[in-house]
Amino acid sequence: MEYTKEYTVKDEHIDVQGIVDGLYYPFYMEYCRHDYIKEVLGFDIEEEARRGVNMVLSQYTINFLRSLKKGDSFTVSCSLMSDKDGLPKIHFKQAIMLNGKVTTKAILSGTCVPAAGGRPFLPESIIEKVKAAPVFEG
């Protein structure tokens, strides 16, 4: 299932060239991904952190294709993929779209870890949803 949210470029994210600074594209993806995790996966990151479970990123790859500019309204998408090796990881395929064209695309991978330390894992509620997700072959 692809999940999307609409955003508008914030003025403070514009650099001296008049485009969005590369640092902020992952933030827009994070806003969307966190809403997806809560609304679709049913995992409340803040609540789980209070319970001692942290969802963390382990890596990401991002490709910048076009720049966003001041005032642009754009869409960010997020979809879930499972790990091809069956590891306790989840992968998120994300894109930023402007006027029907991809400006930025990324794969972000993560897992859950106990706040007190310990091995990575996925909660049962997420494992069930990952079973139905396409496999990430990367």
Rank of each mutant, 00 (worst) to 15 (best):
135 V>M: 06
14 I>K: 05
37 I>D: 02
65 L>C: 04
104 T>C: 11
33 R>H: 04
90 I>D: 07
74 F>I: 03
37 I>G: 06
32 C>Y: 03
18 G>P: 04
80 L>E: 01
137 E>I: 13
120 P>T: 00
84 K>A: 13
24 Y>P: 15
26 P>T: 04
45 I>K: 01
79 S>Q: 11
98 L>A: 05
14 I>W: 01
9 V>Q: 02
78 C>Q: 01
80 L>G: 06
12 E>D: 13
85 D>F: 14
93 K>S: 13
43 F>N: 07
98 L>G: 01
127 I>L: 15
97 M>W: 14
69 K>S: 12
53 V>W: 12
90 I>A: 09
26 P>E: 06
2 E>C: 08
19 I>Q: 04
62 I>L: 10
78 C>W: 07
78 C>L: 03
44 D>P: 00
91 H>D: 01
92 F>L: 10
57 L>M: 13
37 I>A: 04
135 V>T: 09
76 V>T: 09
74 F>K: 02
98 L>H: 08
39 E>R: 10
28 Y>Q: 01
98 L>N: 07
26 P>M: 02
47 E>F: 06
16 V>E: 15
94 Q>L: 00
38 K>T: 09
82 S>Q: 11
52 G>L: 02
138 G>C: 00
2 E>Y: 08
82 S>F: 08
15 D>K: 00
13 H>C: 10
133 A>N: 05
45 I>R: 00
98 L>Q: 12
94 Q>P: 00
65 L>S: 11
73 S>D: 05
7 Y>V: 01
40 V>Y: 09
60 Y>M: 10
53 V>K: 14
56 V>F: 08
82 S>C: 03
20 V>M: 05
125 S>K: 15
30 E>P: 05
14 I>R: 02
22 G>Y: 10
77 S>L: 03
93 K>E: 12
55 M>E: 13
56 V>T: 08
29 M>V: 05
37 I>R: 03
65 L>Y: 09
91 H>S: 11
